[in-house]
Write a protein that binds this DNA or RNA. Structure first.
Lengths: 167, 167
DNA sequence: ATAAACTTTCACTAATTATTGAAAGTTTAA
DNA sequence: TTAAACTTTCAATAATTAGTGAAAGTTTAT
């Protein structure tokens, strides 16, 4: 496999994987492109390499910046804006985990808490609803706590700790 | 909040959360409905409660069965088929984690491995591609190993072990 | 101040994904 | 064996989500 083919394969795979971490294809592809680039890229560069429109590029870059994964790089003397992504995979994982927790898991935990707190009228249906949503609430909250714990540790804590456990 | 409202809120939240664990809305809603039901439900019951068509119900039930989350329950003397879902949240989490690993993570690991194994021609671009995809490969593979380790333990091992770590 | 160089916004269109419902298929009881 | 009771399939349609491109907005150099 040659460089160009490998590059395209990586970008396209990473793009279709976007759904796994909750972002769209173009967003994931832009991130992938920046991730393997040796230097910051302009909007023009990104548009050209991924064959997507200016508007699409602009909106997805903004979203990536909202996530905190991509940052503007101002090159002295250059009018045009350049972009880079976080290059450290551990840090990237931390950011993604944290954002997903905030955007998706936390709101669900709230609903589960509300639902499992309804008045218990002793009917079998109500009892079951409370029991099951409570179990789900506890599981989800534990998972979220773990994520946030990981996320607030220094860089390699996760790897070190978990490797000890799972070696 | 009354029973009916709580039930609807739970089903709709769980449904929109489907994307988080990689399934569609109707599929997640059917699972949610079965999860809080005190007894097995027929296709008719599900269609009526969720207001979805027969075809949709049939296809999504099949998918849930493929995942191993829902099973057919044959009630003696009844012609009609009834369905139940796994009621234990730990077991449910195990099944989901295992399936996602198999369907999504494993194939990505393979691509990352292939891409990071291209011939190193010493150009800066090739070196960067190899370095970054290798880092991603290692991270993803570790995460996947952890998941599978968890998944192959008995019921409460995960909770116990991790709670010790994160208390 | 102004015009060139650039970025953002957003109404429209395209692509993708989910849903329907009717026809075909299957099973069971008599 | 057949017909009623049920489930599955799948082409058509609807709903949702993503992408385009041109107009509006912003910044910078002169």
């Amino acid at each position: 496999m040659e460089y160009q083919e490998a590059k395209e394969k990586f970008i396209s795979t990473w793009g279709s994987l976007g759904s796994l971490w909750g972002i769209n294809k173009a967003m994931a592809q832009i991130q992938a492109l920046l991730f393997i680039s040796t230097k910051p890229l302009s909007m023009e560069d990104i548009m050209e390499q991924l064959k997507i429109s200016r508007g699409n590029t602009s909106m997805n870059l903004r979203q990536l910046m909202d996530w905190g994964i991509v940052t503007k790089e101002l090159i002295p003397g250059e009018r045009r804006e350049y972009f880079t992504t976080e290059k450290d995979v551990q840090e990237l994982a931390r950011i993604i985990a944290k954002e997903r927790s905030r955007r998706e898991i936390k709101p669900v935990i709230k609903v589960l808490k509300d639902v499992s707190s309804i008045k218990n009228d002793k009917s079998a249906e109500t009892k079951e609803l409370i029991k099951q949503t409570k179990a789900l609430h506890d599981l989800t909250e534990n998972a979220d706590k773990i994520i946030n714990k990981l996320v607030n540790q220094e860089q390699n804590w996760m790897t070190k700790t978990i490797m000890k456990l799972f070696k």
